[in-house]
Computed example of a mutant assay.
Amino acid sequence: MSSLAHDLYCDEIIARTDALRAALLGVDLGATVPTCPDWTLRDLAVHLGGAHRWVGEIVRTRATEAVPPERVPEFTPGNDDPAVLDAWLADGAARTAEALRAAGPDEEVWSWAWERSTGFWARRMAHETIVHHADAALTAKTGYEVAPELAADTIEEWLEIVAFARAAGDERAAGLTGAGRSIHLHATDAPGAEWLIEFGEDGFAWRRAHEKATVALRGPLTDIMLVFNRRLAADSDRVEVLGDAKLLDFWLGHSVFG
């Protein structure tokens, strides 16, 4: 269930796309994205813009099953011109946010996940855009900031996605077990932004808590979010790892989806 206002997610889709577009201005779109090494910056932009338009089509048509990409209008930009790509990104984000706003959060639509609603897609696309803006910003070496409530929600949504992947039979996520082990995420710049992830014999659970754990990851909330999404290395000097660092590495290696 979405934890923030529907309109906030819609606003973030546009604002974060604008920030990503700014990061791409004047840079080599053929540059490899270190955090997604199979992609260039152009590939990253086309992936995100296509995702926006795909979700927009699901929402506009109130789709009850997956929509094939070939049925999505303008699923890819018209050509390789950077200006065309930029305009395509802006238009796709705006149209998708408009469709989500018009629908509200409670319309039933198809999704691949545990919640089949327009509210799910608003949240998912906001966080998809937040994380891929990080990819672009880290590649282009531009600034990157996320509002605390959105950074925290990105972490919580990722926990939900990994739990879903495990329940759905993902082989890598299936390994996230082991009673008596735990991870503490501790944001040092946002009161209350702390999580305890506890492993059991049949999976893992999490809650907001300040408790001693097998390993703790401490640092600014945005950096905690970036590490948790594998966009910043856990051994970065921007964060601190206390305790069994191998357990954090184990989590990062198994908490995947898709």
Rank of each mutant, 00 (worst) to 15 (best):
L85D: 07
R95N: 07
A83K: 06
R124D: 09
R101T: 03
A103V: 03
P105F: 11
A102F: 07
M125G: 01
R101Y: 02
R101D: 02
E107N: 03
S111F: 12
L89N: 04
S117D: 06
D106R: 10
P105L: 09
A97N: 05
D106S: 13
A93L: 04
W114N: 11
W110G: 07
A90W: 00
A83P: 00
A93K: 02
A126S: 15
G104A: 05
A87W: 03
W110V: 07
W114G: 07
E98I: 01
A94M: 05
V84M: 01
A90K: 00
S111K: 10
A103E: 05
A113W: 14
L100D: 05
A87L: 10
A102W: 04
T129Y: 04
A94V: 02
W112Q: 03
R116D: 12
A87Q: 11
P105N: 08
E107T: 09
L89F: 06
G92C: 06
D86W: 02
D91I: 05
E98M: 04
M125I: 14
P105M: 11
S111Y: 11
A93W: 06
P105E: 09
A97L: 09
A90H: 01
E98K: 09
L100K: 07
E107W: 03
D106F: 10
A99Y: 06
A87P: 02
L100Y: 04
T118F: 02
L100R: 03
G119C: 11
M125E: 13
A113T: 13
P82M: 01
W88F: 10
A90V: 00
P82R: 01
S117A: 11
A83T: 08
A102D: 13
L100T: 04
R116Q: 15
G119A: 06
R124C: 08
T96P: 00
D91N: 10
P82K: 00
A113N: 12
R116V: 02
A126N: 09
L89Y: 08
P105C: 08
V84E: 09
E128Y: 06
A122R: 09
